[in-house]
């Protein structure tokens, strides 16, 4: 089947999630005898576009950024649907993120396509088309059967490894025959997130729980995060107490993340918390209570006092990095 991916970029650079998506799309197209087309908006420079070719993309559709003063998901949905029809794609793939979640369901409606978000791995079977995804916030998996000719899917974070699969890649300008929708809204203020590493994209996340006793004690966690270049997160009680902002709350009712490495410091590991982190590749738990349920989910554990272990760990990391 031919596959269209939406290759979003961040100021002209493709994030890791998009290269994973390209590799995944190549594997899927390869398995079913098709090719991968990528839709790219705006104007990333040549070397960046080459990365897509190295990951298996045969054709790039370049199109002007529909993003004017404000992101309008209707415009993106129209664009993607039009690109899917133009490229004859029977599968439209997105990497996970707020924009994809705002656009992909609309694309599915436009294309009368079956939809699945958070898919993991290649389809179990192509005919019928059956694909695996996580359900109950990571507590189980479900297989979705999609019966429509076109499928729209969002790939789960960190679920596919980037592979070097270079193919000949052509670049075409794509001018969709669509008109901009009437706005109906205005953006009155924009706050760009700068500096801090975004939780959902972070490779490494350092997370604190009630075990830190107070919001004033976060320094030792920030130091550890700093030494690792990690994003900060917290458990629900911490956000509820107002020790940390709710944007950092990770868990079933907060953010669901899947970093490469997750440090759970002073987090007991309630089932709702596990729901938000269970797709992390490696979990490290540090807790004073040896019976804390978090150790059942962790790959590595340290039983001890956070206020001693964390600074020592930060030192050990800094030492290694300086070597």
């Amino acid at each position: 089947m031919s596959v269209l991916i939406y290759a979003s970029h961040d100021g002209g650079k493709f994030p890791k999630s998009v290269l994973e998506l390209a590799s995944y799309a190549f594997a899927l197209a390869n398995k079913t005898g098709g090719q991968v087309t990528a839709l790219v908006t705006g104007n990333p420079v040549g070397p960046e576009l080459d990365k897509l070719g190295k990951s298996g993309v045969s054709k790039i559709l370049l199109t002007p950024e529909p993003m004017g003063p404000a992101f309008d998901n209707r415009a993106y949905a129209a664009l993607l649907a039009s690109a899917a029809q133009a490229s004859g794609a029977s599968c439209v793939l997105f990497s996970d993120g707020a924009i994809s979640r705002a656009v992909a369901p609309r694309v599915a409606v436009r294309l009368q396509a079956g939809y699945a978000a958070g898919v993991m791995g290649l389809p179990e079977s192509i005919e019928p088309f059956r694909i695996r995804r996580s359900v109950f916030t990571g507590k189980a998996y479900g297989f979705v059967e999609i019966t429509s000719p076109v499928k729209v899917m969002i790939l789960a974070r960190n679920s596919w490894q980037i592979a070097e699969t270079p193919v000949a890649c052509t670049i075409e300008n794509f001018i969709p025959g669509i008109t901009a929708p009437e706005a109906g809204f205005e953006v009155v203020k924009v706050e760009e997130q700068t500096g801090a590493i975004r939780l959902q994209d972070a490779e490494v996340v350092v997370s604190g729980g009630r075990g830190l006793k107070s919001g004033d004690n976060w320094k030792i966690l920030e130091d550890l995060a700093g030494s690792l270049g990690a994003a900060m997160a917290c458990s629900r009680p911490v956000a509820d107490e107002g020790w940390r902002p709710h944007q950092e709350h990770v868990g079933q009712t907060g953010k669901v993340i899947a970093p490469n490495l997750y440090f759970a410091c002073g987090i007991s590991g309630a089932i709702q918390h596990i729901g938000g982190i269970s797709s992390s590749r490696v979990i490290v738990a540090i807790n004073k209570d040896p019976e804390a349920p978090i150790f059942q989910f962790a790959r590595f554990g340290i039983v001890g006092d956070l206020f001693q272990v964390l600074p020592a760990l930060t030192q050990a990391i800094k030492k290694l990095k300086s070597e």
Partner: peptide
């Protein structure tokens, strides 16, 4: 959004 927070009317 992925990299920013917007206030919208």
């Amino acid at each position: 959004m992925d990299t920013r927070t917007e206030t919208i009317i």
